[in-house]
Structures are given as C-alpha cells and as structure tokens.
Amino acid sequence: MSSSVYLRRRIVNVIALTLSGLATLLGLVFLAWILWVTLKNGFGAIGPRLFTKITAYADQGGLSNAIVGSLIMDLMALLICAPIGVLAGTFLAEYANRTRLGATIRFLNDILLSAPSIVLGLFVYVIVVLPMSKLTHGAVSFSGFAGAIALALIGLPVIVRTTDEMLQLVPGTLREATLSLGIPQWKSTVQVLMRAATSGIVTGVLLALARLAGETAPLLFTAFGNNFMTVHPLDKMESLPVAIYQYTNDPSPDLHAIAWAGALLITLFVLALSLLTRLLFTRHKVRYD
C-alpha cells in the first residue's frame, strides 16, 4: 500500500521534472529558431550597397539613410535620457531613499519601464509633433528630434532604475567617511559615490541603448520615415526598425531580403550590447559582494 503511494509520488516527480526540462528546451528552441532565421536570411542579403545606397532606390537600394538616422536618433535619445535618468536615479538612492516621494517615484518608474511603447509614441506625437507643426505652419511636423524624445522616454526608466540600484550598492561607510570630512553632500555624491558606481551606471546607459535601439512603434508617428539621407534633426528621419517595418509590409521579396539584412544588423547590435552589459555587470557585482 505505502509502496504504491511512494511509486505514484516518484512517477509524478519524474513526469514534472521531465516536463520542466522540456519547457527549457522549448524556450531554447525558439531562441535558436529566431536567431537562426535572422542570421541565415540576413547574411544572405548583406552587401556593400546596404551601407552606401539610400532607401529611395527601393530594391536597388540599401539602408544607409536608415542606419544614419537610427544612429542619430539613438544618440540624441541617450543625450536626453542619460543625464536626466542618472540624476533622477541619484535622487532616489541618495536623497529620497526612505521617503514616500521616493517610494512613489520608484514605483511609477517601474510601471513606465513596461508601459506600452506605442502609447509613448502617441504621447510625443501629441506634445511635440502637433505643436511644432502648428508653430511652423506645417513646415516642421514629424522629425528626428521628436523620434529621439520618444526613444528617450523608453530609455529613461531603465537608467533611473539601474542608477538607483547601483548607488544603493555603494557601502554606507563611504558616505559617512566623505561627509565626516566636511565635504558638501553634492560633492560627496558626484565625486565619490557616483564614481564608485560608475560601471553600474554605464551598464544602465548601455541597457537603455539596447532597449531603445530596437524600438519601432514609437518612431512611426514621431520620426515617421524618410527615403532620403538627412542629418537634420528637424527633418523626417528614417530609422532601421521603421525601414524593416515598411519593407516587411511590402510584397516584394527583394525588399524582404533588405529587411532581413537590417534585422540582422539590429539583432547583432542589441545582442552584443546585452552580452557586454552582462560582462560589465558581473565584474561590478564581484567588486561589491
């Protein structure tokens, strides 16, 4: 009797553990499947004209304007969200760590972290694109600048959170030591604590870059797209994700090939960044554990 109960428990255990292993395998299969398809189709289509020709030539063209546009907007977005994010994260960790305001902002920042990016795109459309269009009587409407703001909104919570967490990892004795020397708090924060957490803060910025570089939805109605090369931030600007989106929607297989090449570029960039941050982060952890 008791041995049959024992046998049943053993069988349930084996089944459950097997299913758990299969679930892991399933997850890995999907990762391998997606990466393999992207690599195979992307490498087949990568050529010099991808980097030299603009999208206006369609299937005879490349993605050079999209690559340049993406670089410009990603960089502008970082320039906007990195300082704000680092300062906001510092506020949470150093000035408002145990206050109600700090808790509220931290809580809402976590929500912004997973808020739908398409709504953030609509937000920037309403507060940047529409007013600019009204102000300039339609001369400037969609722009790379608006796109950068939308992307900055996506990167911001990532930077706030990592900066906050990294500064909290800095030992409290360091704070007490600097303050006991009579150094003003801002100097202690900037020159000692932030410096101690530099690699963590850089990790946050890179994570934000990895996150915003692949975003498509918020760019559709802010930067719009542009088949010609432009570096002017107030022009409509093409970006890699939007170019991929347009080419994927097109029936032409030649355009699909170019889209795959663009997809490969973005995927490699984002994955390399994620792995790099992981490297930075583990080194950082070792230092403070």
């Binding site: 499947w33 997606i34 692949g214 975003e215 994700p241 991929i244 989106y245 984002v270 994955l271």
Partner: peptide, 10 residues
C-alpha cells in the same frame, strides 16, 4: 532583448 520587430518578421 531581441527587438519586437524581429519577432514580427520571424
């Protein structure tokens, strides 16, 4: 970390 547009294409 794979961008959602890649999921879309795949």
């Amino acid at each position: 970390s794979i961008p959602s547009i890649i999921y879309g294409m795949w």
